Simulated scan of single mutants.
Amino acid sequence: MQKVSELGSQDILLFFKNVEVDKFLPGDRYIKRILRPAWNLLHHRQKKTGFQVSFEMLADALRANGFNVRVNDYAAARKNPNHPVGVVGFPVILDGWRLPNPVLLGPSLYDHPGLAPKLFADKRFKSYLVLADWMKEMFAPYYGERCVQWFAGIDLDNWPDLSREPKQFDFLIYDKIRWDHDQMERDLIEPIRTRLHEQGHTFQEVRYKMHDHATLKTMLAQSRAMIFLCEHETQGLAYQEALASGVPVLAWDRGYWADPLWQRFLPSAPPASSVPFFSEQCGARFAGIEDFPAVLDNFWNNLTSFKPRNYVKTQLSPKRSAQIYADAYFGTAR
């Protein structure tokens, strides 16, 4: 094992902590921690938070590109106080943060910078990772040039090309609507179903958190295209996994941040996108249900012209993701 005193330019110290809460009884989070591995074997729902998935993708990309990643190695950090550290995940990890090292914060942590407007009053904190362009625009008025844009790289080996698999369905409707779902079911999802039926399209549906990766891969293999329904995304791993699989995406993208948190800090909802990493190679977008019929027809007529996997290969590679992170990470020590 490498001695902690020998940390160098290939050593990256990452710190991550998931949030655990009691659900039914005080202290039952500890019981859930013990039972979770067995329970996970019995269901096909999402087993990890998006924060944890993003963190693991970061660590994997760094390791694949030659970096020695240590996770939650407090001893190494304490013995190397000038070596930078990266802090990822939920804000709770910063509660009582005692390490003296320079810190690269993010991704994740805060949904809005107004939750921590004086974050950089702590001189240990050097930079903050943001994802989408719209997210940088929201954070920059608070954190300025400390904002560094990054993305989680999509590994094409983990998401092989499924475009030539036998298709049972024209569409996979991916429902990740998080606010006012009952209303959106009436005003958006059901009209989409109706239009698909009228046009003779076959489809299947999946709800966010109600699947694991294996289930999603199976559904993508069965589907010619995805209809992605989400108010906004900072990255959007599910639709990008579809793109990587060679499945074009038709996305609902109404253009603003739906989280009611904005009301605490802003006079109106700020701009946001449900597909922040996207191009004409990937598919098409519609802003409202009134636009859907025409966009659907054009999308379907041009289905074979899209090259979504190429977009992921060139724009969302793990190698590029790792290099952006490493540059920002080691830049904190300068």
Rank of each mutant, 00 (worst) to 15 (best):
M1K: 02
Q2E: 06
V4Q: 01
S5W: 11
D11C: 01
L14K: 03
N18L: 00
V19G: 01
K23S: 07
K23R: 12
F24K: 11
L35T: 10
A38D: 13
H43M: 00
H44K: 12
K47E: 03
T49P: 08
F51E: 14
S54A: 15
E56M: 05
M57Y: 06
L58N: 05
R63L: 02
A64C: 06
N72H: 12
H83C: 03
H83K: 05
R98K: 11
L104G: 07
G106Q: 08
K118C: 07
L119W: 10
A121N: 13
G144R: 04
E145V: 00
F151K: 02
Q168R: 12
L172Q: 13
Y174I: 12
R178I: 11
H181R: 14
Q183Y: 10
R186S: 13
E190W: 08
T194G: 03
R195E: 15
R195V: 13
E198I: 05
E205A: 10
R207Q: 07
Y208D: 14
M219R: 11
S223P: 07
I227A: 09
L229I: 11
C230Y: 14
H232W: 13
T234P: 02
G236V: 05
L237G: 01
A238H: 04
L243K: 02
A244M: 03
L250I: 06
W252P: 02
D253K: 02
Q263T: 15
F265T: 14
P270R: 00
A272M: 10
A272D: 15
S274P: 09
S279E: 09
A287C: 09
F292T: 01
D297H: 07
F299H: 11
T304K: 11
S305R: 06
F306Y: 15
F306H: 12
Y311R: 03
Q323L: 03
T332H: 13
A333R: 15
